[in-house]
Amino acid sequence: GTEDLKEEAKKALKKGDKERAKRALKKAGLSEDQIKKFIKEVL
């Protein structure tokens, strides 16, 4: 589900894998702006 994808994105970001995080967030249905915001909040 969406929460799982967001968790996956957080883990990817902590490993420095932004591309993987972006893919997971796109799958979760987030827009580009939401993805940028999510990444900023996590990092």
Rank of each mutant, 00 (worst) to 15 (best):
K36W: 11
E41L: 08
L13F: 04
A21R: 01
K15M: 15
S31R: 05
Q34T: 04
K37C: 06
K26N: 06
K37D: 14
K26D: 05
E32F: 06
E7P: 01
K6Y: 15
K14C: 07
A28M: 10
E8W: 10
A12N: 04
F38N: 01
R23W: 10
K18F: 15
I39K: 01
E32T: 07
K27F: 06
G16M: 04
G29Q: 03
A12L: 13
D33M: 09
A28C: 05
K27A: 13
A24E: 07
G29R: 02
L25Y: 00
K40T: 13
A9Q: 01
K15G: 11
A24W: 10
A21T: 02
K40D: 15
K10Q: 06
L5H: 06
E41A: 10
D4F: 13
L43D: 06
L5W: 14
D4Q: 12
S31L: 05
F38T: 01
G16D: 04
L25T: 00
I39F: 11
K15F: 11
E32Y: 08
K14Q: 13
K22M: 15
A24D: 05
E3K: 09
L43A: 08
Q34H: 05
R20E: 13
F38I: 04
E8C: 06
D33V: 09
A28N: 02
R20D: 08
K27Y: 05
K40M: 14
K36V: 13
A24T: 08
E19H: 06
G16C: 03
E3N: 10
K40S: 14
L30P: 00
T2P: 12
E8Q: 10
I35Y: 02
K36G: 08
L30D: 00
G29F: 02
D17E: 08
E8D: 06
K26M: 12
K37T: 12
L43H: 06
A24Y: 15
E41S: 09
L25V: 00
E7W: 08
T2V: 14
R20S: 14
Q34G: 05
K27I: 08
A28I: 06
D4E: 12
K11V: 12
E8R: 05
A21L: 04
L5P: 06
D4R: 11
E3I: 11
K18G: 08
D33K: 10
K14E: 13
A12C: 05
A12S: 06
E7I: 07
I35N: 00
A24S: 06
V42T: 08
I35A: 04
I39C: 04
L13I: 11
E41M: 10
L5I: 05
D17L: 07
K6H: 10
G1A: 13
V42Y: 15
K14T: 08
L25W: 01
L25C: 01
K36Q: 14
A9S: 02
I35Q: 03
E8K: 06
K11H: 11
L13G: 01
L25F: 02
K27V: 07
K11N: 12
L30N: 01
D4S: 11
E32S: 08
E32I: 08
K10I: 15
F38G: 00
K37N: 12
A9R: 01
K22A: 11
K18I: 15
K11Q: 14
V42N: 12
E19V: 08
L30K: 01
E19G: 07
A24V: 13
E3Q: 10
K10V: 13
E3A: 11
S31V: 03
E32P: 11
D33L: 09
D4I: 10
K22H: 13
K11L: 13
E3C: 05
A12K: 02
A21C: 05
L13V: 05
D17I: 02
K26S: 09
G1I: 13
D4T: 10
L25A: 01
Q34L: 06
K36Y: 12
G16A: 03
L25E: 00
R23I: 14
D4P: 07
L43V: 06
K40F: 14
S31P: 04
E8N: 04
A24L: 15
K40V: 10
D17W: 07
D4L: 12
K18H: 15
K37M: 13
K26P: 00
A21H: 00
D33E: 13
D4W: 15
L5R: 03
L13M: 05
L43M: 11
L30C: 05
D33A: 11
K14G: 09
K10N: 05
L5T: 03
E7T: 08
A12W: 15
F38Q: 01
F38A: 02
G1H: 13
A28W: 04
A24H: 08
L25G: 00
E19I: 07
K11C: 05
V42Q: 10
L13Q: 01
K6G: 04
E7A: 10
E41I: 07
K27H: 07
A28F: 05
K27S: 09
I39N: 01
E41R: 07
R23H: 11
I39E: 03
K14P: 01
K6A: 06
E32A: 09
K18E: 14
R20L: 12
K40I: 12
R20V: 09
L43Q: 07
K14S: 10
E19Y: 06
S31Q: 05
K10H: 07
G16Q: 04
L13A: 03
K18Q: 13
E8S: 06
T2N: 11
F38W: 08
G16R: 04
R23V: 13
D4M: 12
R20W: 13
K18W: 14
D17G: 02
K27E: 13
L5S: 04
A12G: 02
A24F: 15
A9L: 04
K10S: 06
A28L: 12
I35G: 00
K26E: 13
K6S: 04
D4G: 10
D33P: 06
G1C: 09
K11E: 14
E3T: 09
R23E: 15
I39M: 10
Q34D: 13
K26A: 11
K36A: 14
E19W: 07
K6F: 15
D17F: 07
A24P: 00
K14L: 15
K14Y: 13
G1S: 14
D17T: 01
T2H: 12
